[in-house]
Design a protein around this nucleic acid. Sequence first.
RNA 1: CGGGGUAUAGCGCAGUCUGGCUAGCGCAUUUGGUUUGGGACCAAAGGGUCGCAGGUUCGAAUCCUGCUACCCCGACCA
Length: 581
Amino acid sequence: MQEFVFIMRMSQLVGRRIKEDPRDAVTPSHKFLIRGGYVRQVSAGIFSLLPIGKRIITKIEAIIREEMDRIDGQEVLMPVVLPAELWEESGRYASVGPELLRFKDRNGKDMILAMTHEEAVVHLLRSEVSSYKQLPVMLYQIQTKYRDEARARGGLIRVREFTMKDAYSFHTSQSCLEEYYQRAHEAYVRIFRRVGMVNTLSIESNSGMMGGKVSHEFMAVSEHGEDTIFVSPDYSYRANREVAYADWKFEKQSPLELEKVHTPGRESIEEVSEFLGLKPENTGKAVFYKDQDNNLIFAMIRGDFEVNESKLANFVKCPGLEYADDELIRSVGAEPGFASPMSIDRNKVRIVVDRSVAESSNLVVGANEKDYHYKNFNFDRDIKDVEVTDIATVREGDICPLTGQPLKLERGIEVGNIFQLGTKYSEAMNCRYLDENGKSQIPVMGCYGIGVGRTMASVIEQSHDEWGPIWPITIAPYQVQLCAINPKNAAVGDVSEQLYAAIKQAGVEVLYDDRGEKAGFMFNDADLIGIPLRLVVSAKNVENGQIEFKRRGAKDVELWPLDQVIDKIKSVIAEEYKKFA
RNA sequence: CGGGGUAUAGCGCAGUCUGGCUAGCGCAUUUGGUUUGGGACCAAAGGGUCGCAGGUUCGAAUCCUGCUACCCCGACCA
């Protein structure tokens, strides 16, 4: 752990507390980070850290370093500014959208601000490692990243510039990667426990633009989270909505004859099912998407389900699906609002059917003619040569595939992720080593990220009261806050100064409120800063040779004999650390 | 990128509809004094190109046009 400034006087501390909530802050973490004097916004999604905010970040980083070193990581530092050609090698210069900030240097050379460092680490490693004897290896860094987010929000929860710990491992085999992936997972569990994130879930996730197959997200459970998670009641099943599935049961009935019905002006599932006196689950829904090349994809799902665009995008291997416009839909012979998979130009459209349609009977579908639908559509009979898969979005209450219990919905903030990347980058960027037979091989990669600022914000989301954050001792800006009520009183002033010096001597981190503010004012500031342990020096107690001790968030106070304060506070601190070991 | 909103002192806001003398209020700040266990009191003081650029007018924070920044919802996305 790096050396720290152990002590600080409040009278000298830069970063004022603010009484009122900032107008534009909505989440508790955003409000308290601003009000407590931890961070200040410079531009949308771009923040400066004030001293106590920086101390928290430094402590979180120290915990991450320890755990990365424990799983044999080697710390490096790679640049924020990278040449575009490195990203051209991997193909991401073209495939990643506008969130990658591109610019030219003075010579007109294309450059980028790195949003992640797979390319940089492969560039580094391919010239340093050439033998199987050097593998496996893991490199990590704690570095600034930039993502040109369309919409920054929620204080530190979604920002454009941020600090991230990212780690990359290289292996000679998939099994070696899988073994290491497990160790990384365990390291992450330890990290989030140690920083005091009490409610973190590791869940199955969608690999998105990173490529690769197996991946997990570490979610801080919070009502202000941006991601939707489905969990079983016992939390044995946990999955992001993007990949979650349920044990859906569908029932086949004997097919009835196809029947064309007049449904004037009824376009939506609700309108059609109500008009025909049926339920939404008796209908089939058609949703049209287009890929980047303007190719039409016809997704068909039962009327009571929603298409899961992540599942669909993964299935058709196209990351950038968009809703198709009416003109494109008509160009294949379909009628928007009354679309049917039958009687359309099969050469111009790819049809993907959800199991809910394939395994149900006698559904109402469009007739590709304005104001007409068909009743009694049956997949097996009425359509041929289409792809059937799961593209349904889980709904709260759907049955868990593992436990058979109803799934419940949670919100989460993604604070970390781990991926089994495979050879996507090492292969594209020609990273090779020689195996024991002298044969050239491509290393298998894993990557592992943690958002440091987001972690700080998430801890507040999970640990605060109406007055401010309640920091775990492991990342609190100081371990102890010392408050002097009326330090102009000679006895109070003397005892406070002596205590301050003695605490420093004992190696305890203390923030000393020496300002002589009114008690209430001082206590409110202390609560807003959220240091977990508080000592108060007052005239009344000093007269009795006593000091008051209180834990942040607790109701009760203790009175400690003055000559035992140092011993007692040290033991309380040790006890607090044990809670997060 | 679509929808909605905001921009006036360090922070939070009023004033704008209905144009008018010197642009206010609370908090914070400075000075002096009194206070000191859950956001004290008295007295005095400093602090503004009213987001930017044009226009209308005798006169614009206020009306008109354009722009910019920021926030919220959505789209997109590690």
